[in-house]
């Protein structure tokens, strides 16, 4: 069901946990399976994502996708983060079982929602 990369990320996620000073959060939920990914971003004044962390309620694939999503957005401009796709997350993990592809989509959703949340906050 899960390849070694997915299992390694699941067992030792480097980006799991809360993020002090986070100024954006994206919460994506899958209504069918119940998985929830919360992605926290710390964006600096230039709009660069300094740090990203996650908290996830979900299967090993969802946790692995969350971890990869954090790695992929770190260092990007907020706008650039919108270009991170589920396909990239999928590829980074060396592929996912067909039944778990939705987990990568969920992680992409979380990134987009976090960016949306960031813009909402700075426009206030």
């Amino acid at each position: 069901m899960y390849n070694q990369t997915v299992m390694a990320k699941f067992l030792r996620p480097e980006n799991a946990g809360t993020l002090r000073g986070a100024n954006a959060v994206g919460k994506a939920g899958n209504a069918t399976c119940g998985d929830v990914i919360k992605l926290y971003l710390l964006v600096d004044e230039e709009g660069v994502i300094e740090e990203a962390k996650f908290k996830t309620f979900g299967c090993p694939a969802s946790i692995a996708c969350s971890d990869v999503a954090c790695d992929l957005v770190r260092g990007l401009l907020v706008d650039e983060a919108l270009n991170v796709s589920s396909k990239e997350i999928y590829d980074e993990l060396g592929g996912l079982d067909d039944s778990r592809v939705y987990c990568s989509v969920l992680a992409e959703d979380a990134i987009k929602l976090a960016v949306e949340n960031y813009y909402k906050k700075i426009s206030k």
Partner: peptide, 14 residues
């Protein structure tokens, strides 16, 4: 509660 079952299954399996 708050712990997803499939992930728990995989951890227990290990």
């Amino acid at each position: 509660e708050m712990a997803e079952a499939e992930s728990l299954l995989m951890l227990l399996d290990l």
